[in-house]
Design a protein around this nucleic acid. Structure first.
Lengths: 81, 81
DNA sequence: CTATATTTGTGCGTATGTATG
DNA sequence: ACATACATACGCACAAATATA
């Protein structure tokens, strides 16, 4: 059984990093597929109950990690590799 | 040759002031043109490796100096004079 | 062509906590 | 105590790009 990292809002690990790791796990597991969009910032906010800034921070990490590509006005997509 | 002030993170002059002076020099030299946006807060953060607060502090100085004008939701622009 | 909805980009203001000089 | 600086996090607003009715 492979499970994604747990989300612990009160933990020592910053929320944006926890969220980024969870989304990364979804990409690596194939739950989020290449050339397909990841959840919007709005959706991330709602799923994890965080502010937009925090959601954006998480997605920014995915970009830095080379996992996704963002198109303004459209969305953020999983990079095919 | 006119060169902009050096950035010295370990110097006695506060970083926000150093950054503000560098951006001012770019405006006065024409590297940043009137009616054109200066680098976003994010870009300033990244270029100088400082926190958001510090980048914002620098841009706030440019406003106080009457060099730029900030438009909410759009950016900060060099004032034509 | 216009209007609307969605998504991302940018900025403002504020707050808490940590650390250094 | 104070100024500076970093890190994290919340809420809000307006602008721009994109897609669709």
């Amino acid at each position: 059984m492979s499970s994604e990292p747990a989300y612990d809002p009160l933990g020592a690990v910053p929320r944006y990093l926890q969220i980024a790791r969870i989304l990364r796990a979804r990409i690596e597991s194939g739950a989020l597929e290449p050339d397909r969009p990841i959840p919007s910032e709005k959706a991330v906010e709602q799923e994890f109950g965080v502010a937009r800034q925090t959601a954006r921070h998480a997605v920014a990490l995915l970009r830095e990690w080379g996992l996704v590509q963002t198109v303004p006005g459209l969305g953020t997509y999983v990079i095919r590799r």
